[in-house]
Simulated assay, not measured.
Amino acid sequence: MKKLSYLILLLFLSTVLPAQNFFREKFDNGKKYILLANPTAGNIETINFLVNQGLLKVDLRKVHFVGVYFEHQNYDFKKSKKYIHEQELTHFDLHEFRGDLSKNKLFANNSLTEELKYVFRNSAGIFFFGGPDIPPGVYNEKNSLSVVTDPERHYFETTFLFHLLGSFHNEKFTPFLQENPDYFITGFCLGMQTMNVATGGTLIQDIPAEVYGAVTDKATLETPKENLHRNYWQNISDDTQLMGINFHPIRFTTHPFFTKRVKAGKDSSPLVLSSHHQAAEKLGKGMLVTAVSSDGKIVEALAHDTYPHVFAVQFHPEVPALYENQEKRKFHPDDAPQTYHQIIGKKGLKFHKKYWKYISKALKKAGK
């Protein structure tokens, strides 16, 4: 009886939950569609939080979010579908891309090209979120220090960004943004790394080992805290209050992105939430560095040299805990626990709010 009830529930959900074929079905051409790559339930929850808090300012009467993903990704996007339904998020939908992808066909026309173009032409911009390591074969390197868990996600997001922006890997290809230079693209952490790799750049596979010569957690923790990009104390301590991330300052380059566009103070060094062990190395086509780590060794932000609404950061400005007091955590076992909100302080909060204000402004300007 229980099994029958469960099957009936699944059948009911399959008929009432939002379709995962959004752009294959009839949709309102009068809306502005913003894409979310890798639309996990967590990423949808994050964007919804930012909208509800007024950080990401969009008019939900005119704007609609569509999560896009590849059919062979590891994540079960039925969870996203269920989350949208349960939370009654009428301004979110999903679209599944289907086809064949391999690392040998990412930088050319492939089975997704026509559908990517159609979705591009019917949207105004896209967000790329954080996640696991990109297969080094995508940027023509052997795997030395990368941990790859979802190659199909990376193939999809890499080829999508290649189609949008072009790449050193295929100079003859005309990027989609030539057709619409005002299209909006941004990324966080992995999102920035993928943007760099897709346009022909490479990655440092492990910052502690390749930049600082530290091959053990203990050796890594001898590096000054401001030069650590995640928390390695959690690997050698059983303290359950340790955060997995680190907060460290960044500094802006002479590029005007942060100082003139975002209007952050020229000499300010805001604390950012950092959770990565890889970083951009050789820059991709059109990529310019707009911020670096305090020691100048790690790229913290990129902007495109041609397209005004294409930019990304290595850190995580999207995390809800930055904007309100939540669980208290600590970096070192001897530290006093604090919330992320307390750690960044008023200056850090001001910087992050200015960044979201700029993102909102860029999205408003971006058109179909």
Rank of each mutant, 00 (worst) to 15 (best):
66 V>S: 02
136 P>T: 02
101 L>N: 07
45 E>F: 02
206 D>T: 06
45 E>T: 01
276 H>T: 07
361 K>V: 10
116 L>Q: 09
98 R>G: 01
194 T>V: 13
39 P>N: 09
207 I>T: 06
324 E>C: 07
46 T>L: 04
61 R>C: 01
248 H>V: 06
176 F>H: 11
125 G>L: 09
326 Q>Y: 04
90 T>P: 00
76 D>V: 08
80 S>E: 00
337 P>H: 06
149 T>I: 10
170 N>D: 11
7 L>C: 11
147 V>K: 15
361 K>H: 14
183 Y>G: 06
118 Y>W: 12
127 F>Y: 15
35 L>F: 05
257 F>G: 01
103 K>T: 08
273 L>P: 00
302 L>E: 01
220 T>V: 14
119 V>N: 08
158 T>V: 15
160 F>I: 07
284 G>R: 05
188 F>Y: 13
237 S>M: 14
131 G>C: 04
169 H>Y: 15
60 L>I: 08
284 G>L: 11
301 A>E: 06
221 L>Y: 03
186 T>W: 00
13 L>R: 08
339 T>V: 06
365 K>Y: 12
189 C>T: 08
297 K>W: 02
4 L>C: 12
120 F>Y: 15
336 A>V: 13
73 Q>K: 03
254 T>S: 15
102 S>R: 04
95 H>F: 12
322 L>C: 03
94 L>F: 00
135 P>T: 04
348 G>S: 12
144 S>I: 15
105 K>R: 13
70 F>R: 05
263 K>L: 14
54 G>F: 06
278 Q>E: 15
350 K>P: 05
282 K>N: 10
39 P>D: 08
361 K>G: 13
71 E>W: 12
257 F>D: 02
31 K>F: 02
316 H>C: 01
41 A>I: 02
143 N>F: 15
89 L>V: 07
119 V>K: 10
335 D>C: 10
260 K>H: 12
362 A>F: 04
70 F>D: 00
45 E>I: 00
21 N>Y: 13
174 T>K: 15
61 R>I: 03
140 N>C: 08
188 F>C: 09
185 I>F: 02
83 Y>R: 11
163 H>I: 04
42 G>L: 10
